[in-house]
């Protein structure tokens, strides 16, 4: 793998390969052209996987081929630490899901930047972040995440 950036989540070093872009909702985005159409593969960043920990269940609430707007609900996820809805990282068309993960989601934990690939989307990626921009985004996001986690723990 190429170079990577590191962001410290407490004692945990979350690593981000610099060969791809990132979305604000903590997915990586790697450009890939399918049948002549430019698009991106998406998966969870190490930051998201660290927050989730072991993934038990993944469900998509849309079919492949569906046009989506950024932030539209895509599905949901259950893990050791959390349950969450998942949202579209950009506006475009979701062309393919990695269906292997429906039966066994463990590649998300084992190989987040490879076999843990979630889906492929075509669309305008101009809002995606460079690894450096994502680092800056994380610095702010991590403060909120810490507050959210501690706040909910104390409820």
């Amino acid at each position: 793998m190429s170079d990577e950036l590191v962001f410290m989540m407490g004692q945990f070093a979350a690593k981000f390969p610099t060969d791809r872009l990132y979305a604000k909702n903590h997915m990586w985005a790697q450009p890939r052209t399918v049948d002549g159409v430019a698009g991106f593969d998406f998966g969870f960043s190490a930051y998201a996987v660290r927050l989730l920990q072991d993934v038990y269940f993944l469900e998509w609430s849309v079919d492949a081929g569906t046009p989506l707007r950024e932030k539209q609900t895509l599905g949901n996820i259950e893990s050791k630490k959390a349950e969450s809805e998942l949202y579209a990282p950009l506006t475009g068309r979701l062309t393919e899901f990695n269906s292997v993960l429906l039966k066994d989601p463990t590649p998300i934990n084992v190989d987040a930047y490879g076999e843990g690939r979630l889906f492929h989307m075509t669309g305008d990626g101009s809002n995606l972040l460079t690894p450096e921009q994502y680092q800056d985004h994380l610095a702010a996001a991590w403060k909120i995440a810490e507050r959210t986690i501690k706040g909910q723990m104390n409820d």
Binding site: K24, N25, H26, A48, L51, L52, K71, E78, K81, A82, E83, S84, E85, L86, Y87, A141, I144, A145, T148, I149, Q152, M153
Partner: peptide
């Protein structure tokens, strides 16, 4: 369901 889990929806970009 899931009352004992942390809801990370906001962190993952819930509108």
């Amino acid at each position: 369901a899931g009352a004992f889990k942390i809801d990370l929806s906001k962190l993952f970009g819930a509108p």
